[in-house]
Design a protein around this nucleic acid. Sequence first.
DNA 1: GCATAAACGAGACGGTACGTCCCGTCTTAGA
DNA 2: TCTAAGACGGGACGTACCGTCTCGTTTATGC
Lengths: 208, 208, 208, 208
Amino acid sequence: MGPILVTRTGRPRSADADRAILAATRQALVELGWGKLTMGDVAARAGVAKTTLYRRWANKNELVVDAVAALFDELRLPDRGSLAADVEGVVLQFGELLERPETKTALMAVVAESTHDPGLRSRIRHAIVDRQKRLVETGRRRAQSRGELPDDTGDPASATRNADLIFDVIAGTVVHRILVSGEPVDPSWAHAFTALLVGGLPAAMTHA
Amino acid sequence: MGPILVTRTGRPRSADADRAILAATRQALVELGWGKLTMGDVAARAGVAKTTLYRRWANKNELVVDAVAALFDELRLPDRGSLAADVEGVVLQFGELLERPETKTALMAVVAESTHDPGLRSRIRHAIVDRQKRLVETGRRRAQSRGELPDDTGDPASATRNADLIFDVIAGTVVHRILVSGEPVDPSWAHAFTALLVGGLPAAMTHA
Amino acid sequence: MGPILVTRTGRPRSADADRAILAATRQALVELGWGKLTMGDVAARAGVAKTTLYRRWANKNELVVDAVAALFDELRLPDRGSLAADVEGVVLQFGELLERPETKTALMAVVAESTHDPGLRSRIRHAIVDRQKRLVETGRRRAQSRGELPDDTGDPASATRNADLIFDVIAGTVVHRILVSGEPVDPSWAHAFTALLVGGLPAAMTHA
Amino acid sequence: MGPILVTRTGRPRSADADRAILAATRQALVELGWGKLTMGDVAARAGVAKTTLYRRWANKNELVVDAVAALFDELRLPDRGSLAADVEGVVLQFGELLERPETKTALMAVVAESTHDPGLRSRIRHAIVDRQKRLVETGRRRAQSRGELPDDTGDPASATRNADLIFDVIAGTVVHRILVSGEPVDPSWAHAFTALLVGGLPAAMTHA
DNA sequence: GCATAAACGAGACGGTACGTCCCGTCTTAGA
DNA sequence: TCTAAGACGGGACGTACCGTCTCGTTTATGC
């Protein structure tokens, strides 16, 4: 079908402005943090009037979530030959991602704001979180094809519960390690964590 | 020997005011969230002048961290007879704690603010996080005395790394489950998660 | 030739707001006096945000001086046929003006503040005081054309000194009578004062 | 009858403190002006607690008027041999007094505050203004004994009106010259002003 | 090629909260 | 009882951003 072409009259919105605004938002977020980031400052960095921001996003939250969402799409799951190696690889990737200031600040800030804003919460979930679950799914299928994990039982709900648990364990542990404990995700820690996770998987799958 | 008695001149600060302010802060945090919480509102709730807040805390961040810290001291580790039962118990307790609005909001907000404020970060670490590591330590000793875990090797650094890993896994996973995935920590999930963790422990301990 | 048209960008300032603010300032000054007049209150009376005040005036002093300056422009010097009658007329007018609460409060307050603020002092001098010297000049020319006073000698500095002296005597005496002595400027007092002044003029002009 | 001896129990008030407070008030008034003078600052300069100020004066106004009143008692009227010389002498003295910063600031500030505070107004009138009218009285009697002015008629009210007028003219003109016009009271100006006043006196006395 | 219409920059607007300063009162301990 | 010290409730200050609202100008499209 292709994109719907709405021929509208008047001057079209500038795509340059969009890009400049999102980039400026990420930059400001790193330098100032959520609380000190101001719309006026973002506009100035982007070389754009404040009005232009408000024509595109209703408020600060929406703008920041959009500015941040793309950052989390770079995670990949190359085939490293075994389930353990795949997990260890994604743990290290995720660690590197979260140690970058813009990602670190953005994720926590946006989650914090969401704790009392259901709309923002679901926006985050769809724009950021759910998109990463594909990695767990890919890993599981690959492990099954290698014979490292049993095939799915007849219960798809059980499989989903399992995937969600693993996702929470990996994402949660790495986030906590970096943002709360303030320790780095280095290869030796990733190795130990992977051992724990992969070692526990068989037991977990019988309880899910 | 004993506490130093500093005889200070002038009218002493009111301990009632301290308590009222911290309670008002927690209440306001629940109702309004971090972003909408204002010092003036907290002062009014506490029946106190705004200046009285600023005499005690330099700004909003410091006040909120102090107000929140006490909430996390209620976690206990009663002996339930086995390592798995102990872990499951603390996971459920922590889940309940985090599902309360004041804890949920407070923790994330404070962590988010801390991502660009090293002083605040260390204040959180000392006032909130490190104090909970006692639970992991207690659990490990108890499991060793039951024979569920091997005695410490000669390497105390290894033991510390292990404890930190387990702490990050438990705290991180529960936090992620509730705050990011937005799912409840109910008994069946706690059971599955505990199985994963306890099942993986032996493997983890050989890699730490 | 003609006024320079400065095309400025952005939304222009509201002239209505200017007027409303100045009027509200005068009203508040009468009701509350200088010390109790607050910027927030003026803003509220004017139906305007406090920021709108601060966009136009740097502080309370500047605002009040501007608000007050206009009041003194209503003094006129109609031709009453003789120098004595002209002087008596302006003394009575000035007396009436100064017995109005807003003028009374405003003038003293503003002069008092100015005693330790050179900038404010010169602002007052230009905005209020110097503009009234026109009255002395008009009166002198009129008296000369009537033959009541000799024509200017060749020394313009002498004429200026004379005018300034007369201005200080009239303004100072009326102000002191009303604000310090707290007595009214009624016709009989005005008559006596005029007799003193006009009687002394020939002597003064030979010494200036 | 002498001072009333009230034998009171407890520690007596310190007379040193009184002196130190009044001196500190005058000093602060010069440096800061009325508007910026604060009770806390005065207390600190005087080496005294704020409480001690409030035990002696009810508020800022009362304190400042008392601190300032004494300054105006130094005017004298030595006999210079003629009415004109006496007037010129007191004009120059008053000019010098008003050019001192503490007097200048104090007088205007206190008058300004008084415009909306009747109590303060009468306190000023009694403590400062009326005490100076003795000078006019002395000068008049001396001129009469020299034969420069006619003896009092049978109408004492007329004499009083006359004295008040002369007082307003002298005080008002000098104050206006210094505080409003911002020009100095130098000998040549004093000479011209005296000529005006003395030249006008005969005419004024027939109208009073 | 000229009218239409939306986007654009600039910046003023009504608001809200900030953190500071000072007021005048109060509560301690000590002289 | 007075004093020094300093905490207290209160209120205004002047600042910083918010998100909205005019303006005059620019830039596409469609008649």
